[in-house]
C-alpha cells in the first residue's frame, strides 16, 4: 500500500506543470524515503530528477517499494482538477494498476477522487555521481527565467560564463547578439544588464535589486559552457516552486538547474552542453 497526503496540493500541481512538457511518460519510485522520479526527455539531452521526501508529506505510508508508471500529461490533467488550496492524497495498491488522486478542499466539504491507469514504462535510469562542481550560481529564479526568455528571442543557444564576480549570459542570432551580465551582489547592490544588438548598439540597464535578485557565486574555477535555450526555458517552468534557482557548472559536464521545494525536496534538471566539433 502506498499513500501520500500533501496539504499544499499546489506544490504537486506546480511540479507536474514544470516537467510535463519535457517528459512524456515516467516511472515514479515510491519508497520509504519518498516519492521520486528520474526521467529523460525524448532526445536524451536533458533529464529531470524529482525528490519529494516522505517527511515533507502530511501523511506518508509505503509498505514496500512501488514503481508507478504514469503519463505526465494525463497526470497533469487530473491534478488540474484540484484547486490550489486543496489537500491531495495519492493512493495505490502494491499490485494495482491504478493510482487514485483524492482532493479535499480546506473546509473538507468537497472530496473528489480520480483514478488514473498506470503504465508499464521501460526507461533507462542513469547513475549521476555526486560531483563537486567548479561553479555554483544562486540567483533569483524569476531573473533566470527572464534572461532565458529574453535571450531566446535572439538566439538558440546561451553561453554561460561564470567568474568570481559575475555570471554572463551570451547569445547570438541572425538579428544580432546579446550579453547579460549579472554581477555578484549583496543586499542593495545594483545589478547591471547589458544588451547589445547590431541595430541599437549597446544599452545598459541598471536596476535596483529590489526584488531580492541577489547573485551568489561559489567558484573553484571559471567555467564557460554553451546550452540550448529551449531546454533551459522548459526548466524555467519550475520558477514558481522557488524564489531562487541554483546552477551548477563544470567543464564538460551537464549543467544542473535546481529548484528547492520548501520542506520537501527538489526538482533538478540536467542538460548536456553543446560542444565544439
Amino acid at each position: 500500500m502506498f499513500e501520500a497526503r500533501i496539504l499544499q496540493g499546489s506544490i504537486l500541481k506546480k511540479v507536474l506543470e514544470s516537467i510535463k512538457d519535457l517528459v512524456t511518460d515516467a516511472n515514479f519510485e515510491c519508497t520509504a524515503n519518498g516519492f521520486a522520479l528520474q526521467a529523460m526527455d525524448s532526445s536524451h539531452v536533458s533529464l529531470v530528477a524529482l525528490m519529494l521526501r516522505s517527511t515533507g508529506f502530511d501523511h506518508y505510508r509505503c509498505d514496500r517499494d512501488v514503481t508507478m508508471g504514469m503519463n505526465l500529461l494525463n497526470m497533469s490533467k487530473m491534478l488540474k482538477c484540484a484547486d490550489n488550496d486543496d489537500t491531495i492524497t495519492m493512493k495505490a495498491d502494491d499490485a494495482g494498476d491504478v493510482v487514485t488522486f483524492m482532493f479535499e478542499n480546506p473546509k473538507a466539504d468537497k472530496i473528489s477522487d480520480f483514478q488514473m491507469k498506470l503504465m508499464d514504462i521501460d526507461t533507462e535510469h542513469l547513475g549521476i555521481p555526486d560531483t563537486e562542481y567548479e561553479a555554483t550560481v544562486k540567483m533569483s529564479s524569476n531573473e533566470f527565467q527572464r534572461i532565458c526568455r529574453d535571450l531566446s528571442s535572439i538566439g538558440d543557444t546561451v553561453t554561460i560564463a561564470v567568474t568570481k564576480d559575475s555570471v554572463k549570459f551570451t547569445t547570438s542570432g541572425d538579428i544580432g547578439e546579446a550579453n547579460i551580465t549579472c554581477r555578484r551582489t549583496s543586499d542593495g547592490d545594483m545589478k547591471e544588464e547589458k544588451v547589445k544588438t547590431e541595430e541599437d548598439g549597446e544599452k545598459v540597464h541598471n536596476t535596483k535589486s529590489s526584488e531580492g535578485q541577489n547573485v551568489d557565486i561559489d567558484l573553484q574555477e571559471p567555467v564557460t559552457l554553451t546550452f540550448a535555450l529551449r531546454y533551459l526555458n522548459s526548466f524555467c517552468k519550475a520558477t514558481s516552486l522557488c524564489e531562487n534557482v541554483r546552477l551548477q557548472l563544470s567543464k564538460e559536464l551537464p549543467v544542473v538547474v535546481q529548484y528547492l521545494i520548501e520542506d520537501m525536496g527538489y526538482v533538478r534538471f540536467y542538460l548536456a552542453p553543446k560542444i565544439e566539433e
Binding site: 533507462e124 542513469l126 547513475g127 555521481p129 548536456a272
Partner: peptide, 14 residues
C-alpha cells in the same frame, strides 16, 4: 551536427 551531445556521453546507466 549542431554540437548537441546526449546525456549518455556523461552518465552511465545504473
Amino acid at each position: 551536427f549542431d554540437g548537441q551531445v546526449g546525456l549518455a556521453n556523461f552518465y552511465a546507466p545504473g
